[in-house]
């Protein structure tokens, strides 16, 4: 799997801030590329996949950063 081109650091940010950042920065990657967001807010676990479904993007999955914070990956489809 190709790694993310851009990783947003949203540690310490409460919902819906990480999703807002994702919405604002999706255009920073090309169609087909992966953008990631590191977020420790518990709502992000549910809302990143929901955002991808609503916006027609592909939720690739969740990995853990070195500090244990979840990093969610999304492939830009449009």
């Amino acid at each position: 799997m190709t790694g993310p081109v851009v990783t947003l650091d949203c540690r310490g940010q409460a919902c819906p801030r990480p999703i807002i950042e994702l919405g604002r920065h999706l255009g920073d990657v090309e169609v087909g590329e992966v953008i990631a967001v590191a977020a420790d807010d518990v709502a992000a676990h549910h809302d990143v996949p929901a955002w991808a479904r609503m916006r027609g993007q592909e939720f690739v999955g969740e990995v853990e950063a070195e500090d244990g914070v979840p990093v969610y990956r999304i492939r830009r489809l449009s």
């Binding site: 409460a14 919902c15 819906p16 999703i19 807010d41 518990v42 709502a43 676990h45 549910h46 809302d47 996949p49 929901a50 955002w51 479904r53 609503m54």
Partner: peptide, 24 residues
């Protein structure tokens, strides 16, 4: 049912279980 409106700061379990958006 958003996390920021709940006592526990957890999002609604109902919305989470059905895969619905929990914020806003």
């Amino acid at each position: 049912g958003s996390a920021c409106t709940s006592d526990t700061r957890e999002p609604s379990r109902v919305l989470a279980a059905m895969g619905a958006l929990t914020h806003g």
